[in-house]
Amino acid sequence: MTGRVPGRPAGSRTALLVLTSNGVLGDTGRSTGAYASEVAESWRTFASAGYRVEVASIQGGRPPLEAVDTGDPAQQALFADEAMTAALASTLPVREVDPTAYQIVFTAGGHGAIWDLPYDEALAALLRDAYENDAVIAAVCHGPAAFLGTRLSNGEYLVAGRNVACFTNDEERAVGMTSVVPFLLADELVERGAKHDAAGPFLPHVVVDGRLVTGQNPASTELVAEQAIAVATASPA
């Protein structure tokens, strides 16, 4: 089964990791993808809490990863896990995902996310339907780019009037990406009515607003996953 991890008990809670399928930084020719530590740390946190973890990407198949570090313990654990390695090799396309099957939908970042997450109608529908089915919607770093195209059934943006965190303008400047990315994510979220909440550059920072949980940067990943679990635990199963 593509994108699915076998061998977990039936009836256990399930988290979905959503990854970018974009592997190129605009017209630069430089590689990008989903940020590997965000994938690994979110997976490890969810799995440690007893969640079954499944993986989807915009196009399905094997998604590109950036900043792979084989010396990172979380990534070592991820790539040593045979079930997750198989799931990452053949992720579910988001258009095939059942939005009612998950208690948590977590969108990882990485600069690749800027180029495809905001524009994918199937992803927007998945996030809308999962949220309206009482799932926790979580994202970290550039993952909140997925919210730019996500409207609820009432026509309002998912983030309208909500407190959110994401990779900040200062952080984009610090990594030399302001002239590469097509837009600054924090500014675009504010355009959709979000209230951007930021900490200092590269500090862990998580914002919880009801069933919307967002984090600022890769250092925030575990905290986002932990808070998503806490919110889901407090919600009906």
Rank of each mutant, 00 (worst) to 15 (best):
S42E: 06
G176R: 03
M84P: 02
T221V: 14
F183Y: 15
G112R: 00
S12G: 14
E156I: 00
A77Y: 01
A198R: 04
D81L: 01
P144V: 09
E172H: 06
E171G: 07
E191Y: 09
A194L: 04
A234T: 04
V94A: 12
R192W: 03
V97A: 06
R30L: 08
A186G: 15
E188I: 00
L223P: 00
S235W: 03
L126R: 04
F147E: 08
G23D: 04
M84D: 08
I114E: 12
V213G: 02
I58E: 07
E156F: 03
S31R: 15
N217R: 08
N217H: 14
W115C: 02
P99S: 08
L123C: 08
G210T: 12
A230C: 02
A56Q: 11
A198L: 00
P99L: 06
T107Y: 01
S153Y: 07
T214A: 09
A232N: 08
T20E: 06
F147K: 01
A74D: 11
A56T: 13
A15C: 08
R52K: 15
L185E: 11
P93N: 01
V140R: 12
A49L: 09
E121N: 11
G143A: 12
K195N: 12
G50D: 14
D187Q: 15
N169W: 03
V53D: 13
A125V: 09
G210I: 11
V18N: 08
A108C: 15
L92A: 00
G71Q: 13
R95W: 05
E66L: 04
V68R: 06
G176I: 05
E191I: 00
V53P: 09
A145S: 15
A165W: 04
G33P: 12
V180N: 02
V53E: 13
F147N: 05
A232F: 03
A230I: 04
A234F: 01
L203C: 02
S179W: 07
V224I: 04
L19H: 07
N163S: 14
R151N: 02
G110W: 09
L158Y: 02
